[in-house]
Design a protein around this nucleic acid. Structure first.
Lengths: 186, 186
DNA sequence: CAGATCATGTAACTGGTTACATGATTCA
DNA sequence: TGAATCATGTAACCAGTTACATGATCTG
């Protein structure tokens, strides 16, 4: 998948500028894109060239000139037919697994510190996400069902991190069990 | 993070060829790399240039000529100091979220089909992972603790998918609840 | 001897990030 | 007037994939 379908999805509830889209990506924790200029503006040019979005230049209004993009019927068709393809599985990249692969390189205390540091990272991010969730401020568009789905989309990152935290607990238990075993059978 | 540290981690329990490493990446579900040639061989050249691995050419043995790579003390140091950096959070890319963003484009039946299709994808992959786990065949190297950690590393993808399945259930409930509400207050 | 596997490499491309560059408008 | 924000774009790079290319060796 590329960012193109995400942009089209943002546009189904009304026109937006590149700058608007960029901000949406930057604010949205559940979408992995950072919303960097290069990708957003280039993709918009490409979507415009292929007729999936329409562009309207707004020269003189309040504020600097901007280009408003809206989805075209062809764009809606493209998005709809993508929705009817087989959904692909989530792709989770976890560098902590690579660190665990090299556990034999660490002294016991260092391994404990690594695990504790990761636990702390997870804890902090979860607090941040819950805080963000609590402060709300999601003025999402679309039908009541769509708004409810947005709530669940925004919940997703925390669900993933909680699963990671639970898995990390099993790692901690395994390390302790292994050490207890080693003390009994030296 | 790049694939370089994963290669170094594979090498701490003994020398391997590019081909060996490629296979390890291809077989390992928990590491997101496909083990494509370009990346593995180029990274090995780079690691060799920077002195983090040593290369031994094996011209005439049984089998075709191959290059055996082993980690150097400098490589171990590099890996160890990376292990002591702040571990970064997992990066989960889930195109299903983007599909849900566009739910308003779908008829109720189509949304149900999308959710069911994703559920089925998750179910199939989980069965595949459990089967792979059951068949075992993990001749992993290192200390008993390291082998135990490998078991947990290999468990990780299934843990993520189970969390995804649980989250998807909440999506299903929300859709049904929303529709029931809409029927009561039309 | 044909097809699978072992083994190494390159070319072309997609996807994504950081940093650079520019200029208008708003507000303290 | 200077900093923040709005707004659009480009250059250079890193990460990762598919497909192409070659040749040796093993196995039925």
């Amino acid at each position: 998948m590329s960012i193109a379908f995400a942009i089209l999805a943002f546009l189904i509830h009304g026109p937006l500028s590149g700058y608007d889209l960029k901000k949406r990506f930057a604010e949205c924790e559940s979408l992995h894109w950072t919303g960097n200029n290069n990708q957003v503006y280039r993709t918009l040019v490409h979507l415009h060239e292929t007729g999936l979005v329409a562009r309207e230049d707004q020269q003189s209004r309040e504020g600097p000139a901007r280009k408003l993009y809206s989805i075209t019927p062809a764009g809606e068709d493209a998005l709809r037919s993508w929705l009817q393809e087989e959904p692909d599985l989530p792709d989770c990249r976890d560098s902590f697994l690579v660190r665990l692969m090299a556990a034999d390189l660490l002294a016991p205390g260092e391994l404990d510190r690594l695990i504790a540091a990761y636990e702390e990272q997870l804890r902090m991010k979860l607090i941040m996400l819950e805080e963000k969730q609590r402060r709300g401020g999601r003025p999402e568009y679309g039908s009541p069902l769509q708004r409810e789905l947005w709530r669940l989309i925004n919940d997703h990152p925390a669900a993933v991190l909680r699963a990671e935290r639970d898995w990390l607990l099993t790692v901690q238990w395994a390390v302790q069990r292994q050490r207890a075993g080693a003390r009994e059978n030296p």
